[in-house]
Design a protein around this nucleic acid. Structure first.
Lengths: 145, 145
DNA sequence: TCAACGTATCTAGTTTTGTTGATTTGTCAA
DNA sequence: TTGACAAATCAACAAAACTAGATACGTTGA
């Protein structure tokens, strides 16, 4: 629990690493297991320096690790690095419809506006977000209370 | 199943919407339920136009919806929009250690390099990624095979 | 030792993002 | 009406991200 706390900057950095189609493609390939750069290059048809750039972004975000073997570099996904992201998403999903509402002034019909809260909510609840500095909101003394 | 397929561009766009601390803070606030812009503004202490900008990014990514009520705008998370992201992450996590390996040339010891594949892998397997155009890789005829 | 190879890094140019302050639009209440 | 307010949009700028080409570096095999 304690170590699962991630500041938003770290979280944002990891999400950013996922915010590019090329990097998603890389991860998609790595899903199947470790892969060397040259294979990724062949599969993606991307320029070498470009691929190297994206691998660095993923690496610096902690989403993948590399291992040198002779003249090759092998990359692999770090599952644990994905978990805080999953937790954050779980929180965003699970929280909807549960809270007391912002101002409780007008809401009401809003609940049915978007896809009704699925009962199939994830088992894993968020460990993040809930304990982040979410100031105010509680007493609904905002502008439109 | 069929509708769960998301091209990488859409997926990347949504992840990008999550790649900013301010936007994560917004979503964290919206976790508790619908909220009006002014309340978010008060809670985050962000300039109005800045908040509006970030809300637009979230809105255009489909992660939130807005609802006008008089002179106020109320924002709410769209849970369904998070699901493809969760699925993608699930795939990245679940896939590790399962695949046959890229080239099967050197791997082997690599499996223990990073956090060993948790048995507590998510129930929900990815519906994305697996069916994306992941070319090559299968026959391991790469540079370093 | 040397050439070829796989990768990382550097450079420069372009594009995208994020911030700020000003303006605009629509709504409400006096 | 008119003025105050909530929020979106615009314009201008700075910072960050992405790409491509060139180059540097370590490894390998001849």
């Amino acid at each position: 629990m304690a170590t699962t706390h991630f500041d938003r900057t770290t979280l944002a950095k990891r999400f950013h690493a996922l915010s590019d189609p090329t990097r998603l493609a890389i991860l998609s390939l790595l899903e199947r297991g470790e892969s060397c750069v040259c294979d990724l290059q062949g599969a993606l048809g991307a320029a070498q320096s470009r691929l190297s750039f994206h691998l660095r972004v993923l690496r610096e975000a902690g989403l993948v690790v590399d291992r040198k073997d002779g003249r090759w570099s092998w990359y692999q996904i770090v599952p644990d690095a994905m978990r805080p992201l999953q937790d954050a998403l779980d929180g965003f999903v699970a929280g909807v419809g549960v809270g007391a509402g912002a101002g409780a002034a007008v809401p009401g019909s809003a609940a049915s506006l978007v896809g009704a809260p699925r009962t199939a909510a994830r088992a894993t609840r968020a460990s993040l977000g809930r304990d982040l500095p979410v100031v105010g909101m509680a007493d609904a003394t905002g502008c439109c209370g």
